[in-house]
Each structure stands twice: as structure tokens, then as C-alpha cells.
Write a protein that binds this DNA or RNA. Structure first.
Lengths: 223, 223
DNA sequence: TACCAAGTGGAGGGTTCCCTCATCTTGTTG
DNA sequence: CAACAAGATGAGGGAACCCTCCACTTGGTA
């Protein structure tokens, strides 16, 4: 927990800063465990603070979510940046997916964020855009190399995110490494060698956006 | 809607039968759209009946769920039976998965049922056991044939169920055929010819049961 | 056609979570 | 060490669902 608020017009009072930090810790924990719809009253109680205090610091659930997950998005971006500079494009692509899944593997909240479309802050939104751009590059490199099947589009990567999300929700408390097995099956599916034709076109960018909105709408923090 | 109740010690009164049928229709619709946790009060309203009437016919949510989905389980079983008698084992296996996904594709409730473990009636439970047994056979045949990768276990098939469940939830209203693309990617992953070693062992039968319980517990109809 | 068991309606009490606001507490600054 | 603004509190009203219970129909039958 940094000792100051992100954008501080006025520095916080000492007790306020302490509470804010406690809230973020508690929220990170609750979101990781229960997903983004974790009850805020539990978060407050866990932080040893009244519910009103939580709302004073984070007027909406989304404010809290964004602050909690900023660092994770940074890590995600870093993974994408590594992917495009890896010597071997296929290796880079694989390691990117692995890193991305790892970030989501023990965090149901991150999982939700990656698979649903929410009205996120510009800051995070920008990072997401960059991540997507880099992923596109990483894929293209691996396709040019001839290792990644050419009929795979960047939009197909949500399949990994979505699948991963269900699979970790089911297995993280029972056999926490299982998601790797699934990911490596998917990687076999992504190899160019002996790829068989696919029966349905990929999602368009717009369809993808709408699909993620679909998932987001019926659940945690509507706009 | 059959004109009689499944096990009728006494035949239902005519108005009661009518209400029961209306409830089943409304419930099928609601479960398909919203999943197994659809509000029962909506179901009752949709059926044009008071909430008390719903509870008289179906004392627990599970009673309703089971009655609604009996037919679908039958169809699922039929698909599994076809798989093991197909001339070409690989074809049989593929068609089985396709049929299974199809059954779940426009029914969020069926999706929930396939991916979570719930305390179901013996009748449905038996069907599930048979389905699992047949799927196991179908896989073995395709593996003996050399088409299906030998390191795949029956427990790995939940990956298909789980992935499919998320993917249809996201895409069914946006691009309803998309799940096929994903399924055929998975089928490529399942081919022996492209198999690369997997980094993690398959779930054991017991882990699988616990994983499905995990998914089931935090949601619709606890025992 | 009158009776009554079977069936129905829906108010109401319980739970969980949302978010607000009037009142009290406390750090900070002069 | 005041005094005051910044901050904290938590009761409370609201919404969405759950499920129960009992007074009121109503279909079938003698």
C-alpha cells in the first residue's frame, strides 16, 4: 500500500490513509476469493471499518475495483511486452498466455475483469488497448514463423480467457495446477501443423465487445 | 407437457394440471435464459400463478429443475449411445461432443447442470452414470484407433463442458454459432497426431467430483 | 346441488445486500 | 490547546428473493 493516495489534491489524514489501505487489502482479498461481486459490507468488516467509511473512500464499487487491480494490469501489460520481444515467437506467445493465465489463476476478481467488459478508468482502458495491440503483434510473429495456425485471430484469445475463468473457478481449491493442462491442450490446438479447418468464423471485434458486455451486464458493477 | 403427473398416486385435478404445465413451461424458459438460479417468483408470475402454487407443486427448486430437465438428459444419453456404435470411432466421439454442446448451447440451465454437481434424483443420476460410462467407451475406441491422443482421460472432457458453458453465456446472444469454433479447436487439441506432452496430470475422478461440487455450492440449489 | 378435499392466492416475516445521512470523533494547524 | 474541517460511524430505508401459512376458491363426486 503506497503511503499516499493516487491523485492527491490534498494529502489524506493519517487515520484516513490507514483505513484506506486496510480497505484495499481487505478488498483485494475478498475480490480474489469471491469475485468482483463480493459483498462490500464484508470488505468493510474485514478491514475493521464501518460501511460508511468504505463508501467515503470509494463511492462506487468500480472505484474500489479499479484501485485494487491497477497493479495486476501492469503485470499483464509487462507479460505482453515480453511476448513480442522473445527471440522465438512461438515461445513468446506461449509464455504470454501462461503468464496471463497465471495472473488470473488465483484471483477470481482478475478473472472477472479479464472476461467481462466493465466501464473502467481511462488509465486501465489504455493499458488494455496496449495489451491487445501487443497480443496481436505476438500472434502475427508466430504466424509468420509458421508455428501458429493462420486461421486464428486475436479475438480467438478470449476463448482462453473465458475457459480459464470457469476452469479455475472449479479447480483452484481442489487441484490448483489443473488449468495448465487445459492451457497446453489449447496450445496444441493453436499449432499450425496439421490444423483442421474451423467451421465458424472468428468473432469480429465488435461482436467480441458485445459478448463481453453481455457477461458484464448481468453481474457486478453496472454503470 | 404430458397430461398426467409423472408418478401419480392420485390424478391431478384439471386446474392443477393446467397450472403445473404452465409452471413447467415458464420454468423451462426462465432456466434456459437465466440459469438455474432464476427467481422463482418470476417463474410463477410468468406462469400466471401465485408463488404459493409453485411451491405446492414443487416444494424445492431442485424438484422443479429435475422435472424440467429430464428430457434433456434423455437426449444427452441418446447422443452418448450413438457415439459408441458409430462406425468410425473418431467421428462418433466428435459427434457426441457436438451433440452435447448443442444441448447446452441455448440453455443456460442445462449448462449449469452439466458443469455443477447438484443433489439430483436417482433417475437422472443413473442417466449421468451411464453417460459417463459410454463416453469412456467412446474415448477408448477412438484411442485404440489411434486418432484420439492417448494421454486424454474421460475427466478431461469437463474442460469442454466448462469452457463451453462460459463461451455460450457470452456469445449466445451475439454470435450464437461461435461455440462451434471453439469446440473444433478443442477437437484439434484432442487429435493424437498433434499431441505434445501435457504439463499436469488429469483430474482424478474424486477431484472432478469435488471440483463440480465447488461450482455448485456457491450458487443455485444447495441441499 | 351441496359438500369437501384438493388446490390457490398473496400478505408477511426472514435474509442479504445495497447505499445514505445525521451525528459524533479526531487529526491537524495556527 | 482550541477549533474546525476532514473523517468515521452505524442505524435505517430500500430492493430482491426466499419460503410459509391460512383463509379462500373450486373441481369432482355422491
Amino acid at each position: 500500500m503506497g503511503p499516499t493516495r493516487a491523485n492527491s489534491p490534498q494529502p489524506l489524514r493519517r487515520d484516513a490513509q490507514r483505513n484506506r489501505d486496510a480497505l484495499l487489502t481487505a478488498a483485494a482479498d475478498a475480490f480474489a476469493r469471491k469475485g468482483l461481486q463480493a459483498p462490500l459490507e464484508h470488505v468493510a468488516k474485514e478491514a475493521g471499518v464501518a460501511i460508511g467509511t468504505l463508501y467515503r473512500h470509494f463511492p462506487t464499487r468500480l472505484d474500489l475495483v479499479q484501485t485494487v487491480f491497477e497493479k495486476k494490469f501492469e503485470a499483464w501489460l509487462a507479460a505482453a511486452e515480453e511476448a513480442v520481444v522473445a527471440e522465438d515467437p512461438w515461445e513468446g506467445f506461449c509464455r504470454y498466455l501462461e503468464a496471463m493465465c497465471e495472473l488470473q489463476a488465483d484471483d477470481q476478481g482478475m478473472n472477472d475483469l479479464a472476461s467481462m467488459r466493465l466501464p473502467l478508468s481511462d488509465c486501465i482502458q489504455d493499458r488494455l488497448t496496449r495489451i491487445r495491440e501487443l497480443a496481436r503483434q505476438a500472434m502475427r510473429r508466430a504466424q509468420d514463423q509458421g508455428t501458429l495456425r493462420p486461421d486464428l485471430t486475436p479475438e480467438d484469445l478470449v476463448f482462453v480467457v473465458w475457459s480459464h475463468s470457469r476452469i479455475t473457478a472449479a479447480t483452484s481449491n481442489v487441484a490448483p495446477r489443473t488449468w495448465r493442462r487445459h492451457l497446453h491442450l489449447m496450445l496444441d490446438a493453436f499449432r499450425a501443423e496439421r490444423a483442421h479447418p474451423l467451421p465458424t468464423p472468428a468473432l469480429t471485434e465488435d461482436e467480441l465487445r458485445r459478448a463481453m458486455t453481455e457477461l458484464g451486464s448481468s453481474t457486478p458493477c453496472a454503470e
